[in-house]
């Protein structure tokens, strides 16, 4: 695969959120505001790029038996570093993301990419893959955050968009609104790429726990 292809793969063709439906927890939890979605996306991208590079560097050193624990340790190291840096230099965002910053560790996109891509490919390609996947994640989160913020509080990145006279539909900011907007976004994506079912099966190949999941075995969402 060429470098450009690897990079764009994560942004469009295999967008981790809208096509592969991975990392759903942060996607739903932090997207009440566009800026939070963007911040979460960038934090995840940073962790993803770093962990992909390191895991790709160590792919010959790490024995197969302790593969997953090693990945988890490396990933949680980077997550802690990112959250310490954010606490020091971007405090407001750190507080807005809260618990979900630590939960980047268990974001299946990161472990999935480590297992599927970084453990098998060169350092440079792993870095590109991490950046592409991370940016795809960031874009999707910012998009969902924008929709929820515009409908839910009438603003976009804090700027007033809807006239004050229209009272915002606050349910968009609450849990049901999150599920609803996410569902509609995937429906829109499905509408444009209905025929290619192949991708969905690829999606589950990314998941480290494919063995236990029904979707993985039956190849259907």
């Amino acid at each position: 695969m060429r470098a450009k292809e690897i990079f764009l793969n994560g942004i469009v063709k295999e967008n981790p959120v809208l096509v592969l439906v991975l990392g759903t927890c942060p996607t739903l939890a932090v997207t009440t505001m566009a800026v939070n979605g963007l911040g979460m996306g960038l934090a995840t991208t940073a962790v993803l790029v770093c962990s992909n590079i390191v895991i790709s560097l160590l792919k010959r050193v790490i024995p197969n038996q302790v593969r997953i624990p090693s990945y988890i340790v490396i990933i949680s190291g980077f997550v802690t570093i990112v959250s310490l840096l954010m606490e020091a230099y971007a405090r407001e965002l750190y507080q807005a993301l809260g618990l979900f910053l630590s939960l980047i560790v268990v974001n299946c996109i990161i472990l999935g990419r480590a297992e599927m891509f970084a453990a098998k490919n060169s350092v440079f390609h792993s870095m590109l893959d991490g950046a592409g996947m991370g940016l795809g994640f960031t874009l999707a989160l910012t998009l969902i955050g924008s929709i929820r913020e515009i409908f839910g509080s009438g603003t976009w990145f804090g700027l007033q968009i809807l006239p004050e006279a229209i009272s915002p539909v606050t349910i968009f900011l609450l849990a049901p609104g999150g599920f609803f907007v996410f569902g509609c976004m995937i429906a829109v994506v499905n509408f444009f790429r209905r025929k290619s079912d192949r991708l969905v099966r690829n999606a589950c190949m990314n998941c480290p726990s494919i063995g236990a999941c029904q979707n993985g075995r039956e190849g259907e969402f």
């Binding site: 849990a175 049901p176 599920f179």
Partner: peptide, 22 residues
């Protein structure tokens, strides 16, 4: 509707269950 089959419909159902829990 075909575009809503699978995950989208599941998410919207989840949205309704979440609303009930509110």
């Amino acid at each position: 509707p075909p575009a809503f089959r699978g995950m989208p419909c599941t998410l919207i159902a989840a949205s309704l269950v979440a609303m009930a829990f509110m």
